[in-house]
C-alpha cells in the first residue's frame, strides 16, 4: 500500500462522499459547495496521480464555476436555505436504478477488461507542462482553435439569450408627447 495509492483512494472517497452529499442535503448553498469540494477532491486526486497541471487547473476552475452555480441557485430556487425539508425529487426509483446499473456496468468493465501493461513511472511535472504546451500548439492546434471559437460563440450566445430586452419607447407623436398609439 504505497503512499500514492493511499492518497488516490482517500481523495476518491472524499469526492464520491461529497458527490452524494450534493443530492442528500436540503440546503441549496450547501449542495453547491459540496459539489465544489467534490471537484476539489478530484483535483487533489489528479495531483496525487502526478498530473500536476491538470490538478491545479481543476482546483482553480471548479472553485470559480461552482461559486457561480451557488449564486444561481440562490437566484432561482425556492428554498436556498433548506430550512423547510421538502423533497424535490421525481421518478426516484427509476433514477436510483439507473444510477446503480450504470455504476455496476462501469465497475464491471473496469475489473474484467485486460488493460495491458501498466507503467508506473510518470514524467517530471516540468517536462509534462512543456510537452503539453508543445502538443497544444503543435499537433492539437486545430482542436484548440476550434475550442477557442466555440467558447467565444457560446459566450456571445449566452449573453444574447440572457440579456434583458431593451424596452422600446412608444413612437413620439408630432406634438412631442409619448401617447400610446393604438
Amino acid at each position: 500500500m504505497t503512499a500514492q495509492m493511499f492518497f488516490i483512494a482517500f481523495f476518491g472517497l472524499a469526492a464520491v462522499w461529497f458527490g452524494i452529499a450534493v443530492f442528500r442535503t436540503y440546503s441549496m448553498v450547501r449542495s453547491a459547495l459540496a459539489l465544489l469540494f467534490s471537484q476539489t477532491a478530484l483535483g487533489a486526486m489528479f495531483l496525487s496521480m502526478q498530473a500536476e497541471f491538470l490538478g491545479v487547473l481543476q482546483i482553480m476552475m471548479m472553485a470559480t464555476e461552482m461559486s457561480i452555480m451557488a449564486i444561481f441557485m440562490v437566484m432561482f430556487m425556492m428554498d436556498p436555505g433548506g430550512l423547510s425539508t421538502m423533497d424535490m425529487i421525481h421518478q426516484k426509483r427509476l433514477s436510483l436504478l439507473a444510477g446503480i446499473v450504470s455504476f455496476l456496468a462501469a465497475v464491471g468493465v473496469a475489473v474484467f477488461v485486460d488493460w495491458g501493461p501498466v507503467e508506473m513511472i510518470a514524467p517530471d511535472p516540468a517536462q509534462q507542462t512543456i510537452a503539453l504546451g508543445l502538443e497544444l500548439l503543435g499537433r492539437s492546434m486545430l482542436i484548440f482553435e476550434t475550442a477557442g471559437i466555440t467558447i467565444l460563440t457560446s459566450m456571445i450566445a449566452a449573453i444574447s439569450v440572457a440579456i434583458q430586452p431593451v424596452k422600446q419607447n412608444t413612437v413620439p407623436t408630432i406634438t412631442g408627447s409619448n401617447h400610446h398609439e393604438h
Binding site: 459547495l33 500536476e52 491545479v56 482553480m60 472553485a63 461559486s67 451557488a70 436555505g81 511535472p125 507542462t129
Partner: peptide, 28 residues
C-alpha cells in the same frame, strides 16, 4: 517549488472567494 507554481498561487487564492461566500451565507 511546484512546477506549476505561478498557477498554484492563483488556485489557492480562489479559495478566498469560497471562504467569503461561506462567511457571508453562514451567519444567516
Amino acid at each position: 517549488d511546484l512546477a506549476t507554481g505561478a498557477l498554484f498561487i492563483n488556485a489557492a487564492l480562489v479559495y478566498v472567494l469560497v471562504a467569503m461566500l461561506m462567511a457571508g451565507w453562514g451567519p444567516d
